[in-house]
Design a protein around this nucleic acid. Structure first.
Lengths: 111, 111
DNA sequence: TATAGTACCTTGCTATACATAGTAACTAAA
DNA sequence: TTTAGTTACTATGTATAGCAAGGTACTATA
């Protein structure tokens, strides 16, 4: 059987930004927490993916962060959504719904 | 307002293969037809994207084609799914459903 | 002091799709 | 004969995402 793992990975791309912003709209979190939450829904992400993405979102103003001391290690960067990020997230969620509808229409016609 | 067009485009990537195979599992079609069907569901694709993708799928054995004369232009390449392609499509559809569930779970937790 | 655990970050790589532009062949109508 | 329309195909450069692997730094505890 032909392996579909790569195609699977390709489909995951592009939705990470949406998922991360969604998680942060729930409340602030630091990177390790974000990774754990994504794991719960089977969207596995590694640090090498997450950190550059967070930095990019911060540089465009869609995310902010504050430092907080930790009693169990180095200080943590707690990220949170400013209002502009929340607005952007709303747009992304709309786009996601439209995409799902478009793909499902295409798939369902085949049955 | 920050533009979400790029994020939109990124989300579309990776599902194209699924959509094209789904369309062909409905019955054979030639590239221009495929583009038109994708347009119907707002998944706009241009030739420069479609042709390399069809060639890749054909080279891995997931697609086949036959030539057919046309009364309104040059002969058309009708693509269709051999059985192995159908099996692969079934895997992709499963992956798609899993992805949608994972993302929707993440989004819905934020409300 | 040394080690383990936690946390942040960087660099180099691959794959995909896009934009754009071009070639070629066939049909039909002006 | 020329033009327009249809169809297939190719080539090149760009942007982006995500991954693998490794490095840096802080804290607590043995």
């Amino acid at each position: 059987m032909i392996n579909s793992d790569n195609a699977k990975a390709q489909m995951r791309k592009g939705v990470l930004e949406l998922c991360i912003l969604s998680i942060l709209s729930q409340g602030e979190a630091y990177p390790t927490e974000i990774i754990d939450k994504l794991k719960e829904t089977k969207l596995v992400v590694v640090e090498g993916t997450l950190y550059p993405l967070l930095t990019r979102l911060k540089n465009t103003g869609l995310l902010s962060y504050r430092w907080e001391e930790s009693s169990s290690g180095p200080p943590r960067k707690y990220y949170f959504l400013p209002e502009i990020g929340q607005n952007y997230l709303n747009e992304l969620q709309l786009s996601w719904i439209e995409l799902v509808n478009a793909v499902n229409t295409t798939i369902q016609n085949t049955k």
